[in-house]
Design a protein around this nucleic acid. Structure first.
Lengths: 340, 340
DNA sequence: TTGTACGCGTTATCAC
DNA sequence: GTGATAACGCGTACAA
């Protein structure tokens, strides 16, 4: 009833060679052993069911074959989908994933980052909580990451600086969505944003402004309502904006849902009375009564880029890259052409 | 520019004591050192920023402080929510989580289980893919788990046998939901199930039958449509069942959405023309046009039970437990009382 | 009571 | 070219 773990020495003994030889052969390192011996070693290793102990290997190599992933909320569909792809990609490289949730809390970012670093992960994929992107918190996270000497790439949200990052082209998408509204004759546009500490919200807003400027249009500052990326903010935005504008640009689909709910309560129809666009293209947006026009983030491509980039950085600590991914405009039924 | 890792010896040296002493003190093991020395050690450890190397510790203790979590699909809201809570709970015990997705594939179950086991995780939380619960695959997974000698607990889905498991009381919930329908005057009920290899579907069906029997009712076998836990199955079920029955019990909310879509296409109103209940209470069910009556799985409680149980098993390999969690009936607007 | 020495399983260094 | 041997950093039995 003993734990019968076959060790390197066992294989060496069975083959009548040194354990060094076994190690070299099994790791496919250049060695000057006869083909015959090599084969013998492989055979014996297989026969004995030898499995290198990853712990011992880590101790010797200083590599854990593990990537730490820190995100704000795994129950958010965007992140769960991303995590899914990241895990699949990483496993192709032989890496496992430690997953942590910050619950959008700065304190948790700190705690889990600390944990992952002390675990000696080989790399880090980080989406900070909104809290951590605040001026007074940013620096500590940033220095923690830098001081760890562990390669890391920022995902989706980031601070200014030269860190590697992967994110969607929020500005262009914001521009395109707004232009789509304008092209459909909408001159009075309301906007519901997320937290402006997030680059995603800031950049989307930049895109909105750019499109407006190009068309010689202006936005009433009161028609920009700022909040969080949730339904409640959408409800609030709806209350302020409905009956004031001909089209609403919600910075994510969840907010758009809130607008829809409020509109229904007020007896305002979409898109007959007011047009609406969202951002993210989450599952439910496509099965809504009036399907939502929105933007789809290329989650799979981003996850792949993320993993590839990190793997490069693991190999070459000096590698550095900033990847901006284009998103796709998904035109559905929530915008009405009011031209003429 | 060297890697400056403070080691146990460094602390010992700084304190002028043996590394044994430091090890004992820092691990809060009983030792007969003077309080003063203990304090000194703690102070020096802090001052030097000493962090025990988890890898070296693992090699010595044969414990990795890591739990492997294998689930079929992290992008499924039920599982992502569960994973979120599991991670939080485990971190309270000082454990990290390796997360793997089988994508509902037997081959991946095998691959990732192998991986997690070879990683020497201290425990395993497993939700098998539907494929793996098939008669010809079940045994290999089961023996793999058993042979690993690693404590594991099955979550949500399971095979017959005496493994530890945590799952929702599907039969009772199926019974309650059906009784709710019957109490509202529905005698012609249609059912849309998931794969019958899953205990969840089998048990829900049992509950349905029990409620029907008690009421002296019968179900037309043609009114039981079997498929997967997805929208498409709901659409199919809708096509077969609508206009045939007065109420439909979809075995999950996603299927219910499919029914709703089909009903809308056919101009059939819910609940005026047909009543509908689902299962799971996913986020969207509460923001639907007509909010769905369904059952809420106690995800948080289950995740907590899961983690607690596994921790017990890690401490005592002989510990064994089967936990069936009661779910809550969520009555909303999708069932019409047609009595009288 | 304190400290020494060895084991954990692997990789890597260096004499031969 | 090959094979002892020393790390890697921590825990622990055992000797002093």
């Amino acid at each position: 009833m003993k734990k019968k773990t076959t060790t390197l020495k066992d294989v060496a003994l069975a083959c009548g060679v040194s354990s060094t030889a076994v190690s070299l052969v099994l790791n496919h390192k250049p060695s000057n052993l006869s083909e015959k011996t090599k084969q013998l070693i492989h055979d014996q290793a297989l026969a004995l069911g030898y499995r290198p102990d990853p712990t011992a290997r880590s101790l010797a190599t200083k590599k854990t074959n593990t990537i730490g992933v820190l995100i704000p909320d795994i129950s958010n569909a965007f992140f769960s989908e991303a995590v899914r792809h990241i895990q699949i990609e990483l496993s192709k490289y032989g890496y496992d994933m430690f997953l942590c949730n910050s619950e959008e809390k700065y304190a948790n970012d700190l705690k889990y980052l600390e944990l992952l670093i002390s675990r000696n992960v080989d790399g880090l994929i980080v989406t900070m909580s909104a809290e951590s992107l605040t001026d007074n918190h940013q620096a500590s996270i940033q220095s923690m990451l830098r001081d760890s000497k562990i390669p890391y790439v920022l995902f989706d949200r980031f601070y200014e600086g030269d860190a590697s990052k992967v994110f969607v082209d929020n500005e262009t998408s914001g521009y395109e969505l707004t232009k789509h509204l304008i092209d459909n004759g909408h001159h009075h546009i309301g906007v519901i944003t997320g937290p402006l500490v997030l680059n995603s919200s800031r950049d989307r807003l930049k895109g909105v402004m750019k499109a407006l400027n190009e068309a010689g249009l202006h936005i009433n500052p009161e028609h920009i309502v700022t909040g969080f990326y949730d339904m409640e903010t959408g409800r609030l935005g709806g209350k302020k904006l409905l009956n004031q504008v001909s089209a609403i640009f919600a910075f994510n689909d969840l907010q758009a849902f809130g607008v829809i709910e409020t509109a229904k309560q007020k007896g305002i129809r979409i898109p007959e009375d007011v047009s609406l666009v969202g951002f993210d293209d989450i599952f439910y947006s496509a099965i809504l009564e009036t399907k939502l026009t929105t933007v789809r983030q290329p989650i799979y491509e981003m996850s792949q880029a993320l993993s590839n980039l990190l793997m490069k950085m693991v190999k070459d600590i000096n590698h550095h890259e900033v990847i901006r991914c284009p998103a796709a405009l998904i035109v559905r039924d929530s915008v009405k052409n009011i031209k003429s």
